[in-house]
């Protein structure tokens, strides 16, 4: 509710009084906030606070029981997750969701939007029909691999990558979709501390390039380094908002963490 001054002007993503019940249990209750284009926002809070549910609702994988979600002023509440993704909101998962049996390059190429060869007719028309689009997708994927320093594993099966590499792959894959908002669900979970630094560096680069970021995260180092604003949730509600320093001084937040 108490969004930062800059966010009010141009909210890219907005939640209005969103609630979600799971079999009588209110996991999320009356949550409202907005995110400006190019902002980086962190959602923190104790376990069971409803952070991941909020992220899943923004991604369309969980439908809100009440309230609405707007993207660039348009209602996206109730859209299926693939439709939300096509709007430009792409998520990563708490447990890495790479396509294990596909190579790194194939993982990236899958994400390329509106490929000509993805229809039955297109596929049957063959390489001559979809080859050019494929080549340009390969080029874009290659640029990402260079940027993320992963050219060495281009033909490696994604299932054989380390935890940190999988995270990077997920972020690269999201970038292949031309995402405008990246929703990260605990991006550092299960990642070797050395790789966390690399992940942070890459996310900072994306933020610098104007991508809107929202992350649910427990690791305060990366939240402090990346996020301009932090939303603190406890028991399904937003209990505080502001910079990491501000919310840290908030006694209600302290209590939630100790009691939660």
């Amino acid at each position: 509710m108490a969004a930062g001054a800059g966010d009010r002007d141009d909210p890219m993503l907005e939640l209005r009084h969103v609630s979600r019940e799971f079999g009588g249990v209110r996991a999320v209750e009356d949550v409202s906030f907005s995110i400006a284009e190019g902002a980086a926002v962190g959602i923190i809070g104790p376990n069971g606070a409803g952070k991941s549910t909020v992220l899943s609702m923004m991604a369309g994988s969980v439908i809100p029981s009440e309230g609405e979600i707007l993207f660039c002023g348009e209602r996206i509440t109730g859209l299926r997750s693939d439709a939300v993704a096509r709007c430009g909101i792409v998520r990563t998962f708490q447990v890495s969701a790479e396509f294990a049996g596909l190579t790194v390059m194939q993982n990236l190429l899958v994400a390329a939007p509106r490929q000509r060869g993805e229809s039955v007719v297109g596929a049957l028309l063959g390489w001559r029909y979809w080859g050019a689009a494929e080549e340009s997708a390969i080029e874009r994927a290659y640029e990402l691999l260079v940027k993320f320093r992963m050219t060495d594993v281009v033909d490696e099966y994604a299932g054989n990558l380390s935890g940190g590499q999988r995270r990077l792959l997920e972020v690269m894959r999201a970038m292949m979709t031309n995402a405008r908002v990246l929703l990260l669900d605990e991006p550092t979970a299960g990642v070797h501390p050395k790789m966390v630094g690399e992940l942070r560096r890459q996310l900072q680069g994306l933020k610098g390039a104007g991508l809107t970021l929202l992350m649910v995260e427990h690791e305060m180092g990366i939240v402090g380094a990346l996020c301009d604003r932090v939303i603190v949730m406890a028991r399904g509600r937003v209990i505080a908002e502001g910079s990491l320093q501000e919310v840290r001084r908030n006694p209600e937040v302290m209590e939630a963490y100790v009691a939660g």
């Binding site: 994988s61 792409v90 993805e118």
Partner: peptide
């Protein structure tokens, strides 16, 4: 063979590997 080697074949395999992830990339499983 045409289907298998095309982007369609690749997306089908992606759905086989992880349906939720494919959805998160805008594919309709």
């Amino acid at each position: 063979w045409q289907i298998s080697r095309s982007p369609l074949g690749r997306v089908l395999r992606a759905v086989r590997e992880d349906e939720e992830a494919a959805k998160s990339l805008g594919k309709n499983p």
